[in-house]
């Protein structure tokens, strides 16, 4: 009887279909945790299932035991010692003697049972996933189960890639948003600066229009009077007025120069 026609295989395949659908709907890491906790136990036996995924600067470590799944996402790798060996060798491995592997408590608190640790390293261009499974006498894992484990690994890797891409996109969007906000602030400050400069220019223009031209127009008017009429009495009257107006012009010019010089000094500061 082929494995496809085996009723257990069909049931497992249906369970995998349910798992796959559930995983496909996940939009966050905690939803993946829930999916694994609910569905993984129907696909194969295990005491601990672990998957470690890496993309760019993101490291995702999933640990699933019966009744609990935990995903840890970090910017630094959190590989266990045996995973480092798998990453180096690139070939599947099975350990019967777990004493030398420095395993965490979840792997070692299975009492009165002979346990086995299975490990695979699935490599694909810029991403890789290391999958491992702890089985035992009461939770036997066999070579026949590897097909489903590979399917689980493949589905999980696709989903983790999707979530990592969304995370990267969010981070880049945040950077773009910050740049836009910074630019808005720069534009706001520059606009204010230009408004202040325009205000100063307008004030200087008013100073020139009123304060400087006023005594100047008087001087021209007085000189014009002398052009039209050179009688001595008028000359005696007009000369002191020209002097007064010249002094007024001098004061007005000094005020404008002081004002503009102060503005230039402020700009330099």
């Amino acid at each position: 009887m082929s494995s496809e026609s085996n009723p257990i295989y069909r049931i497992t395949y249906e369970a995998f279909s349910k798992f796959s659908n559930s995983l496909n709907r996940c939009r966050a890491f905690d939803e993946i945790e829930e999916c694994f906790t609910v569905n993984l136990k129907y696909l194969f036996n295990y005491h601990v299932f672990r998957a470690s995924y890496f993309r760019n600067a993101t490291y995702v470590h999933l640990d699933s035991t019966l009744g609990n799944t935990c995903i840890h996402v970090a910017g630094k790798p959190g590989y266990l010692e045996y995973e480092k060996l798998l990453l180096q060798s690139n070939v599947p491995k099975k350990w019967d003697d777990l004493g030398q592997l420095e395993l965490p408590l979840s792997f070692t608190n299975i009492a009165d049972e002979q346990t086995e640790l299975w490990g695979w390293n699935f490599v694909d261009e810029d991403r890789r996933i290391v999958v491992s499974l702890l089985s035992g006498n009461r939770k036997k894992f066999s070579l026949r189960d590897i097909n489903f484990l590979k399917l689980v690994a493949d589905n999980l890797e696709t989903k983790l890639l999707e979530l990592c891409l969304i995370k990267e996109l969010d981070e880049k969007n945040n950077i773009i948003s910050r740049i836009i906000e910074d630019q808005k602030e720069v534009i706001k400050n520059r606009t204010l600066e230009i408004e202040n400069k325009n205000k100063t220019l307008l004030e200087i223009s008013v100073l020139n229009a009123h304060n400087v031209r006023e005594p100047l127009s008087r001087i021209i008017g007085l000189v014009n009077l002398l052009d039209d009429d050179e009688e001595e009495e008028l000359v005696k009257q007009v000369i002191p007025l020209i002097r007064i107006s010249s002094n007024d012009l001098d004061v007005a010019l000094k005020n404008v120069i002081n004002y503009t010089t102060k503005d230039l000094s402020d700009l330099k500061a």
């Binding site: 006023e214 008087r218 009077l225 009429d229 008028l234 007025l241 007064i244």
Partner: peptide, 12 residues
């Protein structure tokens, strides 16, 4: 307000 200006205008 400037007396000199009025003086000029009066003469003219």
């Amino acid at each position: 307000d400037v007396e000199i200006s009025n003086f000029i205008m009066k003469r003219m």
